[in-house]
């Protein structure tokens, strides 16, 4: 039976938690999410001026302190191509990528996980500790890894039983 996008998102969150990711934000299908990433305005394109990732998660990273995972999900595998295009665009938008790190900047005194934003300004954008995950459901469970720009990307298809 075909899964809804909401169910895929929920399963993804559980899967990520099992792999040690701390989930910070989940964007409901028709609602507002707390984690908004501004995008470079593109002239003559009638699109939202921001990215709203379905899930944002972090986990410790020995080099940068943290890694960020941006997740896009769809109910079925065949619908993922538009998400992949969207993330390819984001992965080539230096402002948006740096914005992600800025959003996760540590505010001293609160004990929250966060980046040393100022200390990371010398790091080239393509080396930022950001990675992507695409999730959907399909008749057969699948998993693959690939690259978008220089960033790690994964695709997971949950078996839609």
């Amino acid at each position: 039976m075909t899964w809804s996008e909401e169910r895929v998102t929920t399963e993804t969150v559980l899967w990520l938690k099992g792999k040690g990711w701390e989930v910070l934000a989940v964007h409901p299908p028709d609602g507002q999410g707390p984690f908004v990433v501004f995008r470079k305005p593109i002239r003559n394109r009638n699109e939202r001026s921001s990215y709203h990732p379905d899930v944002v998660a972090i986990r410790p990273d020995p080099k940068f302190g943290l890694r960020v995972l941006i997740v896009e999900s769809k109910g079925v595998e065949s619908d993922l191509s538009s998400d992949i295009e969207k993330i390819e665009e984001l992965a080539n938008d230096n402002f948006a990528l740096r914005w992600i790190v800025f959003k996760l900047r540590r505010v001293e005194g609160f004990g929250l996980s966060g980046f040393d934003y100022e200390g990371m300004t010398g790091i080239p954008v393509s080396d930022l500790p950001i990675q992507f995950l695409f999730a959907a459901s399909g008749p057969v469970a699948k998993y693959r890894t690939f690259k978008i720009r220089d960033f790690d990307a994964e695709e997971i298809i949950f078996e839609d039983v």
Binding site: V23, A25, P34, F35, F102, R105, V107, F110
Partner: peptide
């Protein structure tokens, strides 16, 4: 203030 950058300070039920 602790969520200043993440969500402009808005507290979400995490």
């Amino acid at each position: 203030l602790k969520f200043l950058f993440r969500s402009n300070g808005v507290v979400h039920l995490m």
